[in-house]
Design a protein around this nucleic acid. Sequence first.
DNA 1: CAGTGGTCTAGACCACTGA
DNA 2: CAGTGGTCTAGACCACTGA
Lengths: 238, 238
Amino acid sequence: MPIASISETIRSELESRILSGALSPGARIPVERELMEEYGCSRMTVNKAISSLVAAGLIERRKKAGSFVSRPIMHPTMLAIPDVQTDAVAKGQYYSFRLLRREVRTARKRNGIEAALGQNGQLLALSGIHIVDHQPLVTEERIISLASVPEIEDVDFTKVSPGTWLLQHIPWTQSETRLSSTAASMTEAPLLDIPFGAACFVVERKTWRETLPITYVRQVYNGSAFSLTGHFGVGSSR
Amino acid sequence: MPIASISETIRSELESRILSGALSPGARIPVERELMEEYGCSRMTVNKAISSLVAAGLIERRKKAGSFVSRPIMHPTMLAIPDVQTDAVAKGQYYSFRLLRREVRTARKRNGIEAALGQNGQLLALSGIHIVDHQPLVTEERIISLASVPEIEDVDFTKVSPGTWLLQHIPWTQSETRLSSTAASMTEAPLLDIPFGAACFVVERKTWRETLPITYVRQVYNGSAFSLTGHFGVGSSR
DNA sequence: CAGTGGTCTAGACCACTGA
DNA sequence: CAGTGGTCTAGACCACTGA
């Protein structure tokens, strides 16, 4: 194991004092110049340690006033929502994507999502189903802005899923993900090989590259075969 | 607006070059000593800029070899899973918690979760329902380690929900959250005032304080009244 | 107006590791 | 073994803002 650097030592000792409650929310922590003396190091080193605790949300700083233990403590969770194909391949499972529909068209009026994606031109609308280990796992309805991603018009989606292709070719900077549940519809139920009305898990995502909209996708998972797990550790983001 | 510092300038210019694709995944970025000259600044300043991009996952560094644009690009999402009561109160909605069952007992054998929570003593088992704007929104089954949180035995849960009380009184450091969907059971359906078998959204969470287990909770939401939304921006964690 | 943090400099020594 | 990043020093000047 690597020997902890001075700034790591300061960071972890402050973190312990906060998490143990020795320094309670709202408490003032020693000023940088005090910590310099305590650890016999330079101010830059102290600053680095405290800055990482600020980034982790454990400390807030105010000039002249000092540095304070943050007050709120919520339930944030970092969820890594997997790409279906990438995830299946990583687990060594058999994967295929079955394309059900492919259409190039303009945005439908009165559909806010399509309007945003299609404001600069045409849309590619796809629907299909992800099959993992020979079982249908999740249906997908996707809309892609051809103005933002013209080259996708020539991609063969029998070899690669649209999501995987986009991940590998288009850099994105912002995403918004919505998670919900729904009852399987008349179209989804037979595709997923589950009863009409069965509980499903829904992932919807919009993705942007800077301010340029790229894609919207709605995925409906077989609810009995899918869950998402997220972890969160206070101060885990170094 | 504050004038960007030198390190912020370097950071944002590198970020732009990466996100625009001018520097593609796997590409080598200039070494620190080159960037020093380019920006006419000290190495520490360059290092600070690059370190923040490393923390944001955009860059990976290898000694001797150099610094490279990261390859993967996943779909991480930061979800802030709200506390039901805190969330409702913040929105100005009427909130109440109805306690249905309260029991102090030892862990049931063959139940891994209870065994972990009850290894040092007794458990407090609670069940109840969160009522928001006079509509039942979510049922809750919770188990709390009395060894870790002895003072909770005297709390009156007609005024405050167990989750809110814990958030406000017990510092936690690690949590694991699982999201899934399920069909409403015979006990849940009437409590939520929905049909038996209706699609529900399930949140399960285990929480620790360092290595000490604190609580496990399973919440079943009325699926037609609930969704979670998370955002993610590349490089948003400064 | 004085205490605090924000940022930077111009070096330094070292560990690591790819050529 | 040389290039690269990791970390640190001992200062410095300044902006902000609470007392």
